[in-house]
Amino acid sequence: MKLTVLGCSGSVPGPDSPASGYLVTADGFHLVLDLGSGALGALQRHIAVPQIGAIGLSHLHPDHCMDLCGLYVAAKYSPAAPFPRIPVFGPSGTAARMALAYDLPDDPGMEEELDFRSWQEIQQIGPFTVRTAPMVHPVPAYAIRVEHGNKSLTYTGDTGPNEALVELARGTDLLLSEAALQDNDPRNPPDLHLTPADAGEHAKRAGAKRLVITHVPPWYDRDVQTDHARRTYPGEVHTAFPGAVYDI
């Protein structure tokens, strides 16, 4: 299983990175986790659009899903179209939300091109067993654990600190964790995002084998956030950057 970072800028696209997007590949199958602003362009450096096997959305904030609009256009109008409907897993109501984003009627919305499905606690997506758990965020949001053979990747999506994340990530080979807030900042709102200390603490408690810090807004320094995560997590810690590849 291989993880490729398409975009890792938190909350908004940055000058050197799209918003959230990650490509997980095994056995020739390509699963995209989140498709935020700019991530579709980065994806095409690695695979062609018709090669997408499925998409999983952690939640419906624009920095995690809005490039589905571009995907819809490609699936409807590109020379390769039409191609088989791409499964899109996400929170309940994803189809209606994306139709609204592109100013389409609900029926059919994007459903002739994309096959919208609501997250279940566990589902089989291509060669992957995918588990989810609800997170703590202002909108319905999920952390996502992708398993292939005896290996696993757990992606936090966006969340405040919570025990469900620790349980979902238990023993994971790689925890891809957001760290959108700064440690010890009195302005940090509750139940929104993790700090680097939170990310490290969750990884440590889960027994994660590696930690990758992502979703850092462009107004903070990614490497500083990663250094701060090392204060609470004693294992191997990396900074996500566009094009980074991790073998799992």
Results as ranks from 00 to 15, higher is better:
G10M: 08
S11T: 15
P13G: 05
G14F: 13
S17N: 13
T25L: 02
T25F: 00
D27S: 14
G28Q: 10
H30T: 09
A39I: 05
L40K: 04
Q44S: 13
A54C: 12
I55D: 05
I55P: 06
S58E: 02
H59A: 00
L60A: 07
H61L: 09
C65F: 13
D67Y: 03
G70T: 01
A75Y: 04
K76R: 15
S78E: 09
I86P: 09
G93C: 11
M98K: 00
L100M: 14
D106T: 08
D107Y: 13
M110A: 11
M110W: 03
E111Q: 15
D115H: 07
D115I: 02
W119V: 03
Q123N: 07
Q124M: 04
I125F: 10
T129C: 13
T132N: 03
V136I: 15
V139C: 03
V146F: 08
E147R: 01
N150D: 15
S152P: 00
G157N: 01
T159S: 15
P161N: 01
N162Y: 00
E163G: 00
L165F: 13
L174A: 14
L176I: 12
A180P: 05
N188L: 11
P190C: 04
K204P: 00
R205V: 05
A206V: 02
V212C: 12
I213Y: 00
I213D: 04
T214N: 07
P218T: 13
W219P: 09
D221V: 14
Q225D: 05
D227A: 15
A229G: 02
E236V: 10
T239P: 10
F241M: 13
P242V: 10
V245C: 12
V245D: 05
I248E: 03
